[in-house]
Design a protein around this nucleic acid. Structure first.
Length: 454
RNA sequence: GUGAUUGUAGCUCAGCUGGUUAGAGCGCCGGAUUGUGGUUCCGGAGGUCGCCGGUUCGAACCCGGUCUUUCACCCCA
């Protein structure tokens, strides 16, 4: 049997794990610094919790878990004969793997509403699964790092999330990211003004592709979706939107005079943009992007998306927004939420491409004791015990060398693992230590070694 | 889901238009030399050429299917 793992999944070497942990820790630290507290939810949920929350496309991408037991026996024979996969699936699968962290969080909030202190600021760092076809920066198992606030409609939270994005990416050394921001109310307003409110989703999905397929492509897709040419004519300025965030807000305000909702969106965005400008960002830039729509249907207010630094070809490395009624589906009305997500795996790829992992300490020992003489082994192990008590990673080569070649193998082991210090002999409290990078060999006491290494 | 693309020793890859026992480098194992490594040399193990089927006297090489890789679309982190 040949070893292998399922499509779209990965093994991680210890070097990779160290780098990933570096990102995890940076994000976790910032989340807590901003006042968020952790929760975790199960890897799989009841299908009814997940299905129908991500649109038709989303349902298709949810990994379904087969019922245990003799699951076919309970299914009606006629249903099986019809070969309607969707209907049969709902009969033989009642659980599914987590598709994102937001919906399980909404479920959590409703289920634990009596224990939660609102406004509730939670963060969650866990893997999610999607039955997508893998490609660059896209996997079937990947980590999301989410921070959300529920129970507050304050725009200050939306300002804070821009700060949070900036903080994390700056700390990671991932400078010059672009935090794109938009507001669903503006999109609704535009649709209203042009008389295409009933086609809001089609309209936004098409508009979202502007930077990818250009004006002609977007117009073509809108026409195909049944949006009239006259309507498209009215939003023409959107296709050549430029200038500062303030310029954009001003021209949006003009365009949306007929829509109360649209004007509210402009006002909201202006509040966020003004305040972020006043507070300042460390390394990211905030860009108002009217074409930003994102596919998820549940966003109702602010929409965020983070683009990698220019020149790095990668989909968005973060996204989020406000959803006014996510918990409504589970029976808790009038709880507004807003949140953002970091895509760990894509951040990793971008950082790797930019060579930003130099500072990450790899999990390897600082001192290696060679094992050439059985009589010295015990003294070496005792010395190692002291080193470890001083927080110096150290180890002894496990097998005693019984030949020249085996000694050579131990040296090679030290070289390959890039271990800095090698101790060859320990005699009467005196150690012979070799600095592997300089080749310099010295004799010293254990205390002197500890000083040298620290 | 649509359209391409990839698959040969542990790793990176050769293998001419199908022709007898499929190769290299690195790595690994054993040994020699270097006082104690990153040098050099000798020897060795290791492959159902992704899998299944077809064409052919004969296939790693041609055809079909399937899985896998990578990429684009869709969608998204």
């Amino acid at each position: 049997m040949k070893p292998g793992i399922p499509k779209g999944t990965r093994d991680f070497s210890s070097t990779e794990v160290a780098k990933r942990n570096y990102i995890f820790n940076t994000i976790r630290h910032s989340f807590e610094n901003f006042g968020f507290q952790p929760i975790e939810t199960p890897s799989f949920e009841n299908s009814s919790t997940l299905m129908g929350k991500y649109g038709e496309e989303g349902d298709r991408l949810i990994f379904k878990i087969l019922n245990s037991g003799d699951y076919l026996k309970k299914v009606d024979e006629n249903l099986l004969a019809d070969k309607d996969s969707q209907k049969v699936t709902s009969k033989i699968s009642e659980k599914a793997l987590r598709y994102d962290l937001t919906v399980p969080f909404a479920r959590y909030v409703v289920q634990h509403q009596n224990e939660i202190i609102f406004p509730f600021k939670r963060y969650q760092i866990q893997p999610v699964w999607r039955a997508d076809r893998p490609q660059k920066g896209r996997f079937r198992e990947f980590y999301q790092c989410d921070a959300d606030v529920v129970g507050s409609k304050s725009l200050w939270q939306e300002v804070e999330f821009v700060q949070l994005y900036d903080t994390v990416f700056s700390k990671l050394g991932l400078n010059d990211t672009t935090i794109k921001i938009n507001n669903r109310k503006i999109l609704s307003g535009i649709a209203e003004v042009i008389g295409a409110s009933d086609k809001l989703i089609d309209f936004t999905v098409a508009l979202d592709k502007l930077d990818k397929i250009g004006k002609d492509g977007v117009v073509k897709e809108m026409l195909e979706k049944g949006i009239s040419a006259e309507a498209i004519e009215k939003v023409d300025p959107l296709f050549n939107f430029s200038g500062s965030n303030q310029d954009k807000l001003a021209s949006l305000e003009d365009m949306l005079q007929g829509s109360e909702e649209g004007l509210q969106g402009v006002a909201d965005l202006r509040t966020v943009v003004d305040n972020v400008e006043s507070i300042g960002l460390a390394s990211a830039s905030l860009e108002l992007d009217v074409t930003l729509a994102r596919g998820l249907n549940y966003y109702t207010g602010a929409i965020y998306e983070v683009a990698a630094p220019e020149g790095v070809k990668m989909g968005s490395i973060g996204g989020g927004g406000r959803y006014d009624d996510l918990t409504g589906i589970f029976g808790l009305k009038d709880v507004s939420g807003v949140g953002i997500s970091f895509g760990l795996d894509r951040i990793y790829l971008v950082m790797e491409e930019l060579g930003l992992f130099e500072a990450v300490e790899l999990p390897k020992p600082k001192v290696l004791f060679l094992n050439f003489d059985e009589n010295e082994s015990l003294d070496k192990i005792k010395a190692i015990k002291t080193l470890r008590q001083n927080n110096i990673k150290s180890e002894m080569y496990p097998d005693v060398a019984s030949s020249n070649n085996q000694q050579k193998k131990q040296w090679k082991y030290a070289t390959n693992r890039e271990i800095e210090f090698v101790v060859t002999t320990v005699e009467n409290g005196t150690l012979v230590v070799k600095n592997m990078s300089t080749g310099e060999q010295t004799t010293c006491s254990l205390d002197e070694l500890i000083n040298k290494v620290q």
